[in-house]
Simulated assay, not measured.
Amino acid sequence: MVHSPYTIEHLRPDTGSSDQDLTPGVPNFETITLGELVRLKLPERQQIIAPIIPVQGLAMLYAARGIGKTHVALGLSYAVSCGGAFLRWQAHKPRRVLYLDGEMPAQALQERARQIIAASPHQPPTEDYFRLLSMDRQSLGLSLNLAKPEHQAALEPHLIGVELVVIDNISTLVSGGRENDADSWDAMQAWLLQLRRQGISVLLIHHAGRGENARGTSKREDVLDTVIQLKRPEDYDPEEGARFEVHLTKARGVFGDDALPFEAKLEVIDGQAHWTCKTLQDHELVQVEELSQAGMSVRDIAAQTGLSRSRVNRMQMKLREEGRLRH
């Protein structure tokens, strides 16, 4: 198993205590002074796939049914295993991935894998850089509930060398009580934090609930570095297949253009999965430009586009600076 690049020994001051000082059954917590923390020579935190999942990072991707969660999860995972790119994200070196799938038929997984591999200019260094645990391929009656310590322990042999675990999805692989009950998430959260201390990053795949939030307790998001939301564009046509907006609703350390929402579209051509992306801001800017030229007021533009009036004002200023809007 991959271990953290630094352990408690790096943090432990020399107090002269020994194992004989430990009381059986009582946790022996260690502390460190602020000065000692500042003087530590810690490794720079790298990225599993930049800029959204850091090493020892915890992330969640969620969307309503049928939008494309598994397409994104598989494409991102393959990029990590190859050291390649996916959508607007880049993995700078290959890392081992364990993909846990709780609901896809093996045939559907196989088809998507073939499309991804056929379209990619990269390959993993060896085949074991991307391993799958598909519940559809397990013995009849065998289940996986990651909220149970015994099931977490059963995964230990499969985590050796792994740097990214993808859990697709929470609804099928985590059963810890009522979904909206924050306490029911405690066992799972403890395991996620344990994986992080061991140097393993985790991407959780989840369903959207009513409105635009992830389904169930919001406590899931407390320890996460990144939360990614996929949602349908307003002008979406079901015949388009996988086309959606990508929004970072929580992103520690992600700023500027990296944090901007964008639109992604999948087209399968000759058995190859091809993705195209465009910045949503460009689309919105064009929309504001057209409505402004039509003589609509800021209030009316905001009502029609769903943008705030202050944002419409800023976009009109940008259009004037670029000479695309005269008044």
Rank of each mutant, 00 (worst) to 15 (best):
residue 4 S to C: 12
residue 5 P to T: 12
residue 9 E to R: 13
residue 9 E to K: 14
residue 10 H to N: 11
residue 10 H to Q: 08
residue 10 H to E: 09
residue 15 T to H: 13
residue 16 G to W: 03
residue 20 Q to R: 15
residue 22 L to T: 13
residue 26 V to M: 06
residue 28 N to D: 12
residue 31 T to H: 07
residue 35 G to N: 14
residue 39 R to S: 15
residue 40 L to S: 05
residue 42 L to R: 10
residue 43 P to N: 09
residue 43 P to I: 13
residue 43 P to V: 14
residue 47 Q to S: 12
residue 52 I to P: 08
residue 55 V to C: 06
residue 58 L to I: 03
residue 58 L to A: 01
residue 59 A to Q: 14
residue 59 A to F: 15
residue 64 A to C: 01
residue 66 G to R: 07
residue 74 L to N: 04
residue 77 S to Q: 00
residue 84 G to R: 09
residue 86 F to H: 13
residue 94 P to W: 12
residue 95 R to H: 07
residue 97 V to S: 07
residue 98 L to C: 05
residue 103 E to N: 03
residue 103 E to D: 14
residue 104 M to A: 07
residue 109 L to K: 02
residue 109 L to W: 10
residue 109 L to R: 04
residue 114 R to Y: 06
residue 115 Q to G: 03
residue 116 I to F: 02
residue 116 I to Q: 04
residue 116 I to A: 03
residue 123 Q to L: 15
residue 124 P to C: 09
residue 124 P to T: 09
residue 125 P to N: 02
residue 126 T to Q: 08
residue 127 E to P: 06
residue 128 D to V: 07
residue 129 Y to S: 05
residue 130 F to N: 02
residue 131 R to M: 14
residue 131 R to C: 12
residue 132 L to G: 05
residue 134 S to W: 13
residue 135 M to Y: 02
residue 135 M to S: 03
residue 136 D to M: 03
residue 136 D to H: 07
residue 140 L to N: 07
residue 140 L to Q: 11
residue 142 L to A: 05
residue 147 A to H: 02
residue 148 K to A: 09
residue 149 P to K: 00
residue 153 A to E: 15
residue 155 L to G: 10
residue 158 H to K: 14
residue 160 I to C: 11
residue 160 I to Q: 15
residue 164 L to Q: 02
residue 166 V to P: 00
residue 172 T to W: 06
residue 173 L to F: 02
residue 181 D to V: 05
residue 191 W to Y: 09
residue 196 R to I: 08
residue 197 R to C: 05
residue 198 Q to G: 11
residue 216 G to H: 04
residue 219 K to V: 05
residue 223 V to M: 11
residue 225 D to Y: 10
residue 227 V to I: 08
residue 227 V to K: 12
residue 228 I to A: 04
residue 235 D to Q: 03
residue 240 E to D: 01
residue 240 E to Q: 08
residue 242 A to F: 10
residue 243 R to G: 08
residue 243 R to M: 06
residue 245 E to F: 03
residue 246 V to E: 08
residue 246 V to A: 08
residue 247 H to G: 10
residue 248 L to D: 00
residue 249 T to Q: 06
residue 253 G to P: 03
residue 254 V to K: 02
residue 258 D to V: 02
residue 258 D to C: 01
residue 260 L to K: 13
residue 262 F to W: 01
residue 262 F to G: 06
residue 264 A to Y: 01
residue 265 K to T: 14
residue 267 E to F: 10
residue 269 I to R: 06
residue 270 D to C: 03
residue 270 D to E: 14
residue 282 D to N: 09
residue 282 D to Y: 02
residue 284 E to G: 02
residue 287 Q to K: 15
residue 287 Q to E: 13
residue 291 L to C: 03
residue 291 L to T: 04
residue 291 L to R: 08
residue 291 L to E: 05
residue 292 S to P: 05
residue 294 A to F: 14
residue 294 A to Q: 15
residue 298 V to F: 09
residue 301 I to F: 09
residue 303 A to N: 07
residue 303 A to T: 06
residue 303 A to D: 09
residue 305 T to F: 05
residue 313 N to I: 14
residue 314 R to C: 05
residue 314 R to F: 07
residue 318 K to R: 15
residue 319 L to C: 03
residue 321 E to W: 04
residue 322 E to G: 04
residue 324 R to V: 05
residue 324 R to C: 04
residue 325 L to P: 00
residue 327 H to S: 13
residue 327 H to R: 11
